[in-house]
Design a protein around this nucleic acid. Structure first.
Lengths: 174, 174
DNA sequence: TATTGTTATACTCTATAACTATA
DNA sequence: TATAGTTATAGAGTATAACAATA
């Protein structure tokens, strides 16, 4: 899979319209390229998936800024929301993050009063993670914002198409 | 959109199977979380798109390693392949990269003997980028590898489903 | 001996500011 | 004045090694 760097908040954005199937995307050798032919890249699933993800992330960053949540913060807190008592190790495993990078994030959540670490019931090495009341309030709003946001980004797709899209994507990564 | 960090080569990978629709994904409070409930995240397009992209990237990195190409390298060279004479500015614009980060990449391509910078026909500030013969040989192989790779990653999807998937993804980012 | 959480640190990728030469 | 390319550098994100406490 190719494409734009992983980074989200790109100052410079890919161009909007592409002649994905138009043979007019021609190079006029003597005057340089007039319009860039991106048809090959657009035939690759990885490229398309990445571009779509970046498009959503861009809007995500804007609308989640008021909550002070970046994508990774949001997905982590969302998992804690729906899995109270989850451990850092389980979060790392589920989201594909590395433990050393999780520590600081959870500590930051604690400092912000969003998350509590409590003793794990059966394993004294581990700690269960729970949302505080403030954390619950924040995440209720944040998840509503996230769901609404995705509707906006996918406004060109019908509800059925969105379902189809998710199903197809999951066949790739699950 | 949430999820795993942008980085590609993750040492630790998300778990393989998810009970996306199974209500059995329950927390057994007194013994910690048994199985992580990821249903909410899996209802988000951005999350799914990112996860799918990462799944493809993972395989991409493995199979492109012999060519010494990372995803961004590949997409850049692919655009030069199909748009001989393209400028760095056009590459940046198309792929969402920033000029300062493009310079080093192109210079590295030149040092490897894959790309040539030639004078632009009409704009003396710009330079047209072209593949050398070695570059063409490499990219012919690399693009074949990329196409084959995606077939493997998307083996659970029929040709029609792959087409549908691309179309739906493009409706999001185009 | 293996695992959870942690610290410190290195590496990669992405972003910003400022300069040059042309337009 | 604006743009293409460049340099240097800052910043965010991700990765590796090593340790303490517990299993």
């Amino acid at each position: 899979m190719p494409s734009p760097g992983p980074g989200a908040r790109q100052a410079m954005r890919p161009r909007s319209s592409a002649p994905a199937s138009s043979p007019k995307a021609r190079a006029i050798a003597d005057q340089g390229i007039e319009e860039v032919d991106t048809r090959y890249l657009e035939s690759l699933i990885g490229y398309n998936a990445r571009r779509a993800a970046l498009a959503v992330i861009e809007v995500f960053l804007e609308r989640m800024a008021p909550y002070g949540l970046k994508p990774v913060d949001f997905s982590t807190l969302s998992l804690i929301t729906h899995n109270p008592g989850i451990t850092a190790r389980q979060l790392c495993h589920t989201l594909g993050l590395l433990p050393p990078n999780m520590v600081g994030m959870v500590s930051a959540f604690e400092r912000r009063g969003l998350v509590e670490r409590r003793a794990h019931p059966t394993d004294r090495r581990a700690q269960g993670l729970y949302l505080t009341e403030a954390g619950q309030t924040l995440m209720t709003q944040a998840e509503q914002t996230a769901s609404a946001l995705e509707q906006d980004v996918a406004h060109k797709l019908t509800a059925q198409q969105q379902k189809t899209l998710m199903g197809l994507l999951q066949k790739i990564y699950l």
